[in-house]
């Protein structure tokens, strides 16, 4: 008998709680479901001459071979990767310097011993550089002026070796890129 009364009481309370929840649920707009306000204003679209890998505004300049940004500062690359850069002022007359800042991962050196990086613009290959130690490194190379006499320049980077998919990661891995840029001489 006591349990029956208790059960009825519990049922009544539950129904009340349910009703209260239902009423709350019916109120339409809720603070927990705010509308999404998009960022519509587009700054003057421009191609940058140099940028860091975490730079949101430059993401579209990573044309291929770059993986998702990590810690908002670096990206793994594949064995070949491509960026789009704007030649800096006067570089079409005096030439420029291409710089890629990156790290060579321990696992890359352990598995591959050395890696050689070559940049090319169109069909012109720039001077390759070889890296045999893990850690931070910079690829710096002169770019002839005639290759920079355009609005934008597409630069292809290629490694002689990379870690194939499945050996360390499901992705093909090359370098850990942090920044890239063209500077006038």
């Amino acid at each position: 008998m006591i349990q029956s009364i208790t059960s009825q009481r519990l049922t009544a309370i539950t129904i009340l709680a349910l009703s209260a929840m239902a009423i709350e649920g019916c109120k339409g707009k809720h603070s927990q479901q705010p509308a999404v306000k998009n960022e519509e204003a587009q700054p003057v679209a421009q191609i940058l001459s140099s940028f860091k890998m975490g730079d949101e505004a430059a993401q579209a300049q990573l044309l291929k071979g770059f993986y998702v940004v990590e810690n908002n500062s670096w990206r793994w690359t594949a064995g070949s990767f491509t960026v789009l850069l704007k030649p800096p002022m006067a570089s079409a007359q005096k030439g420029g310097t291409l710089t890629l800042s990156f790290s060579v991962a321990d696992i890359v050196i352990k598995k591959l011993k050395t890696v050689t990086l070559t940049a090319s613009i169109g069909t012109t290959k720039l001077k390759p550089q070889t890296y045999s130690q893990a850690g931070s490194a910079t690829y710096t190379v002169d770019v002839p002026a005639d290759l920079l006499a355009k609005e934008t320049v597409t630069i292809d980077f290629e490694l002689d070796h990379s870690l194939p998919p499945g050996s360390v990661d499901l992705r093909e891995l090359g370098l850990i890129a942090t920044a890239v840029g063209l500077e006038p001489k």
Partner: peptide
């Protein structure tokens, strides 16, 4: 909205 920069690249 990244239309402008996307259409450039």
């Amino acid at each position: 909205n990244i239309t402008a920069v996307y259409s450039l690249t």
